[in-house]
Design a protein around this nucleic acid. Sequence first.
RNA 1: GUGGGUGUAGCUCAGCUGGUUAGAGUGCCUGGUUGUGGCCCAGGAGGUCGAGGGUUCAAAUCCCUUCACUCACCCCA
Length: 418
Amino acid sequence: MAKITSVRGFRDILPDETPKWQRVEEKIRRIFFDFGIQEMRIPVLEKTELFKRGIGEATDIVEKEMYTFLDRGNEYLTMRPEATASVIRAYIEHHLYEKDPMAKLFTIGPMFRRERPQKGRFRQFHQINVEFLGQEDPRIDADLISMLMYLLGEVGLENLTLEINSLGCDVCRPAFRETAVCFLKEREGRLCDDCRRRLESNPLRIFDCKNEACQKTISEAPVILDFICVECREHFEKVMEYLHLLDVSFVINRKMVRGLDYYTRTAFEITTRSLGAQNAVTGGGRYDGLVQMLGGPAISGIGFAIGFDRLISMLPDTDEGSGSPRIFMAALGEEAQKHAFYLCNMLRRSGVRAEMDFSGKSLKSQMKRADKLGCSHALIIGDREMAEGTAQLRNMGDGTQGPVNIHDAGTILRRVTG
RNA sequence: GUGGGUGUAGCUCAGCUGGUUAGAGUGCCUGGUUGUGGCCCAGGAGGUCGAGGGUUCAAAUCCCUUCACUCACCCCA
């Protein structure tokens, strides 16, 4: 029979890895708590329309990367390719803005994009999303970004580069777009095939192209920062001012654009060299029009997504250690095993990690297992001990052992934890 | 969607230009100690050589097809 394997690009995170995921997640939750960011849990499946409207029809995500299917009942559903649209949908649906004009939300979970898998990219991947809704003050931008940098540092990431840019707003971006397209059209012959296609579909994306010839052309092209309106410029400068105040270092990337349509004004990205070609750990930005675009009131917002899988892969493998049981019950004979079974469970209920063996193997192999599991102690119970009412408690570290009353779980507990 | 690399034991890999029963290390099991782990020693189990087809007296090895994994492009977290 043919083996059933996992779906391409979907992977298992095995017990060896999960402690790392848990440690990071706990730390992040703690930080979010301190910063007053509340969790929201949202569905993995949404109506396709949500992403078409939220992310933009012409984006790669919507055009070719979504897992979309026709549900019974003739409705198109999509496995979410990102979280922001869902968060905003829920925010609008439950009228959260009526309760409190300002919301700071986070969500953690899997996202799905049907791309070709490679290093740091999976079809199911995990993101940590944070959204600050309801205020467009530039200090919010600085607050969010500095929190993000702090968080990544606390988790243990090093050698990060924060790049920021302003993408302008509805007022100033169209003008820039027009001159940029004009400029690029005049030099269409020097652009690569992809970029020529982008001229029609998503011209601003050309600024992101890695092709050398294109880069050369782009280096002479107009830059959005020279076109943004007074309000956008003031906003951007305030963001930088407050980042300085919090001692967050950054570089301005004048050519940075975003792959999703909803971004306005502040855009940022955090990259690292230790991740292969997929060097972005985090991307985010302001999206002042999104809530309205999805049918809500005119409420501004800013947020980011951390690539959880990428973050984890950058962290060194450490021995978490804490997963080792403290004591192993090595029992010989039926009576002894029965008592060990009882003791084992008593100890566990007292908060001591205890293990035992049910296969009736030799003492030697039970001791081997105790060692393999990394137990600090082994309790040896055989017929002799059962008769005497004492067991041998062995310290696996130094090899010393001595008698202990087998009916006195309290003493065993103290000897093991003390 | 496009291109490169790789598929041999649970894991990491060797197997040269085709040649008998396909190997090593590690892990696993058992024994050396009639009831004592780590170190050491001995033994054992474990493989449709990714799959299908072809060439040949003979294929893990050569050819074709296919699948998977992987890296890169595209794009993004």
